[in-house]
Every structure is written in C-alpha cells, then in structure tokens.
Amino acid sequence: MDSIFPQYQLNRTIFAEGTEHLFFSGTAYLGISASSEFSAYLKEGIDIYGTNHGLSRINTVRLRVFEEFEIYFAHHAEAQKTAVYSSGFLAGHAVVSLLENKADAIFVAPHTHPAILSAAIQNQIDPAHNWIDSCIKFANQNEGKQILLIANAVDALKPEIHDFSWVRALSKNNNYTLLLDDSHAFGAVGEDVFGTYKRWKELPVDLVISGSLGKGLGLPAGIILGSHEFIRELTKQSIYRGASPPPPAYLWAFLQSQEIYRKQQQKLKDNIQFFKKLSQNLDLQTTKEDFPVFRFDDANLLQKLQEHQIIISSFPYPSPNDPPVHRIVISAWHEKEDLLALVKVLKI
C-alpha cells in the first residue's frame, strides 16, 4: 500500500489524491486529536502555560501542573507514584536503563517494543526459545536471583491482550520485576483510560509500567508507573533531571477533560461491539476482550477496500522484507454509518 501524505489532522475521513476516504488506521483510539472539546481546553491551556516549557523538572522555576498530572494519574491507575516524560520512548529508555543493571537474568516476550529494550538486551533475545518456559525453568533452578520480565501489555499487530497470571506460579525463591509497555493499553484496555497497572498490581512482582500517552490519550508525553521507591530512584537519573518535560498545556487539558475521555472511551467500546456483531461471520482476527484492532491476511481484501475509498493499516512487519500486516483500526471518531459502510465492502 502506497504512502499517503495528508496536509491536515487525521479524522474519521481523510483525502487521498483529492478523494475522500474512510480512515481505519492509526492509534488514535479515542479520537482525542479530532475532538473540538479537547482542543478548546488545549487552547485555554496554551493561553495559561504557553506552547512549551523548556526548563527541566529540577530547575528553580517549576510548574505545579506536572506534579498535579502525575498525582492524578497515579491515583486513578492505582499506582503509588508516576513520572511523566516528553515521550514514551524516552520513558522506556529511562526505565530499562535502570532495571537491566540490577537483574541477574532477563526474559523478554516476543515482539516487545524496542522502547523498553536496550541494545544489550536485544542482542540476548533468542526467538527460538519460549520466554515463559525459559523463565519458569530458570526460576525453578535458582534461588535469590533478581529476575526481570519484559513485555508489551498489548500486541496491537497480532492483536492480543497478554495474560500475565502465569507469573503467580513462579518460584518464591527469587525476586521478580515485571516491566510492561502500556502504550496500546492506555485508553483502549480496561474500565478506564489509565492502562493495566491495576490489573496486574497484585502479582508477586515489582510492577513497573512504561508507555506512550500519544496513542489512545492523544498527549505528546510518556509515563512510568511504579512504587514510591522506584520512581524516586528513577527521577535521580540524568535522563530525567536534564530532559525537558512535555508541553504543560496538554497535561492541563487532560485534567480538565475527564468527562470527554469517559465519553470517548464509551463510544469506542460501543463501536467495537457494533462492528463485532456486524462482522462476526467474516474472517477477521481480534481479541476476546474488546480491543479496536481487527486483522486479516487476504491481500485481495485490501485491494477491494482501496477501490471503495477505505484506508486501513497495512505495512511490512517486523522487518521491511516481511509480508504486510493488514489491520482495521476502529476509533471513537467513527460513526455507525462508517462501520456499516466498511462491513458492506468486506462482505462483497
């Protein structure tokens, strides 16, 4: 599928070669970037804080909105503490650079996002081994080890929402840290928009969650969630102390927009349920729990959608030489008539 370069914001439709197309791609699961209500709060936030804040968080001039955002997010995610960064990749790099040096052994799930993998860890990954079996075997054969488990909470390409309940069965003779990337979970998985921390916080591990807020939540920022002690240690790093934070206007707008987020998440859930019912007899791969991604393998179907002015996600993965992964991505910005039009073409 050829690249498209629109000159305006993404929404439920975009123009390609002068023709309007329905748009079922991207990661704007809640459609926040196209919300006029959120934009109004954002403009107000810019009037208050300006377009950016170039001072680091440890400077003598500090804005309270960063801490207010962190406290609010931690409370609703049911984490002890959070730290906000300017991107999910920076947050991931910060957290893994701290954790990998403390680990005696590291086990990595397949297709884990490189944001939470250092170069050294990537070089150690053996795709021929089952990471869960390898972890269980190592844990049973050792005592007193610091074991680091790394995975995505959600595989948005497969798609799959991962289950980490198997960790409960690990030997109690070691200490475990579970690092999850929640980038595709924020806004899209669970009862609220705050990700999977509360889902896994009772596991017998030190739980750390990192991720981008730029997908479902539409914020140019990253975040790390964990214990008081871990976040305090994290914020002593130069990567935190010397880096500029995200634009404060977005964080302020988020705090003012909780009703908007609740409304958009409910609309996303309604859209997913509606599309599932319409497409239940089609050969689409999706998750048992609601998630807004539906995958198919038929290249002819991709061509048919393009002929009917419908754009979906399609690109080679994981390497440029691999076959394209074809995915339909549902968003809260879609209307029922969009989904009906999509299914009509899928059934031709």
Rank of each mutant, 00 (worst) to 15 (best):
residue 330 I to Q: 00
residue 317 Y to E: 08
residue 338 D to G: 04
residue 316 P to W: 10
residue 288 K to L: 12
residue 283 D to Q: 15
residue 309 Q to L: 09
residue 296 F to M: 03
residue 326 H to C: 13
residue 277 K to Y: 06
residue 275 F to I: 02
residue 283 D to C: 13
residue 282 L to R: 05
residue 307 E to K: 12
residue 335 E to D: 10
residue 305 L to N: 01
residue 334 H to I: 04
residue 288 K to I: 13
residue 326 H to P: 03
residue 333 W to T: 11
residue 330 I to E: 00
residue 293 V to Q: 01
residue 262 R to M: 09
residue 318 P to M: 09
residue 329 V to I: 15
residue 271 N to T: 04
residue 313 S to I: 00
residue 286 T to G: 07
residue 333 W to L: 12
residue 327 R to N: 15
residue 317 Y to A: 14
residue 269 K to F: 08
residue 318 P to L: 13
residue 324 P to F: 05
residue 298 D to M: 09
residue 280 Q to E: 15
residue 344 K to R: 14
residue 311 I to K: 10
residue 340 L to I: 15
residue 344 K to F: 08
residue 341 A to C: 08
residue 345 V to I: 15
residue 270 D to W: 04
residue 341 A to T: 12
residue 304 K to W: 01
residue 292 P to C: 09
residue 272 I to N: 00
residue 335 E to C: 06
residue 265 Q to Y: 02
residue 280 Q to Y: 10
residue 313 S to P: 02
residue 261 Y to Q: 03
residue 295 R to V: 11
residue 283 D to F: 05
residue 267 K to S: 11
residue 314 S to T: 06
residue 310 I to T: 03
residue 335 E to F: 03
residue 289 E to H: 13
residue 296 F to R: 00
residue 329 V to E: 05
residue 277 K to G: 11
residue 329 V to L: 10
residue 303 Q to K: 15
residue 316 P to Y: 09
residue 311 I to Y: 09
residue 270 D to Q: 15
residue 261 Y to W: 07
residue 284 L to A: 11
residue 307 E to P: 00
residue 317 Y to R: 12
residue 290 D to P: 08
residue 271 N to F: 03
residue 330 I to M: 05
residue 280 Q to K: 14
residue 271 N to L: 06
residue 319 S to M: 13
residue 319 S to K: 10
residue 345 V to A: 08
residue 323 P to F: 03
residue 296 F to G: 02
residue 273 Q to C: 13
residue 346 L to T: 01
residue 306 Q to T: 06
residue 271 N to Q: 11
residue 326 H to A: 07
residue 317 Y to L: 12
residue 329 V to N: 07
residue 308 H to D: 14
residue 336 K to C: 04
residue 298 D to L: 07
residue 293 V to Y: 11
residue 264 Q to W: 00
residue 301 L to M: 14
residue 341 A to S: 13
residue 269 K to Q: 13
residue 344 K to E: 14
